[in-house]
Amino acid sequence: MRDRLPSMKLSLTMTGLLLVTLLLFCADILFGGTPVEAADVVKALLGAGSPESEIIVMEFRLPRALTALIAGAALSVSGLLMQTLFRNPLAGPDVLGISSGAGLGVALTVLTLSPLFAFSADSPLQGWGMILAAWAGAGMVMVIIMAVSSRMRDIMTVLIVGLMLASAISAVVSLMQYFSNEAMLRTYVIWTMGNLGNISWQQLRALTIAALAGMILAFVMVKPLNAMLMGDTFSRTVGVRMKSTRVLLLAAASILAGSVTAFCGPLAFIGVAVPHVARLLFRTTDHRTLMPGTALCGAAILLASDLISTVPGGGHIIPVNTVTSLIGIPVVLWIILGKNAMGGRR
């Protein structure tokens, strides 16, 4: 009996969160930079709208909302994996330099390779090429961070190494920018601002497949992830194979963060902050609940950020990174300050 009450509360919270996410998804399609009547949006979705509204809805708003949904979920789950893996509440794609790594991969393709091979923006090769480059970049940084954190017990050391890596990478990228032509430079700079809207259906398909693969891999790992909450030694003595588990978790986190970063740019603070929002909402450390909870929270928060970035100006779209930062930074501050306040809260 004792277990029934929390589990009912849990499914209620999960259902509520699902509804909120769906609502935000619909709202994200209904509202955008150019005002379109709600009725026209529905007609366009059904394929019976005016050509103009159909282009706005089908080519811009729907892919944009889908991207927000997938990117939010993927980045947040990636953050959750990394926080448990590194035993660090501040771990996340952007904090540990994973996004920078992905950025390096993208910079390499956009700034150096594509002028050489003259990729067109829409060629499927560029879609997968960018994803692969981002994975490789993210994975490389992850491996370095992992190697450092296995030698250094101190969390702060790992964070500092992450920051240094990010700086080093941005220096390399600056160098590439210096030697690249104006058009490529512009493409790259706009990419760094974080953009959910610049994605074609072709790219969206690649993103969806990659994100799904990463999510499935992550979800298969919930049991060892839970054991890791008690520490590495415990995990090993109950039969978790730590080496392969680490490799799989790193792969899942890199795939998730790398794919999103490849197409949407380095979206700030979603990966670090959202898992904490989910922990607060569900009041548990159990990954069986946290994983879907984090995915939904991430989707909802990025959809909301996207809505905020398009609605207020009326015509103007502000970079979504500004919005996610404004939402994410307070959460991160709350984690850092809350750790010290913990003793007082007993």
């Binding site: 448990t84 035993r87 890791m228 909450l229 008690m230 520490g231 590495d232 030694t233 415990f234 922990r279 450390t285």
Partner: peptide, 10 residues
């Protein structure tokens, strides 16, 4: 072990 529990919020 004497290793501290990784997640103190559990």
């Amino acid at each position: 072990s004497t290793e501290p529990v990784a997640e103190r919020n559990i």
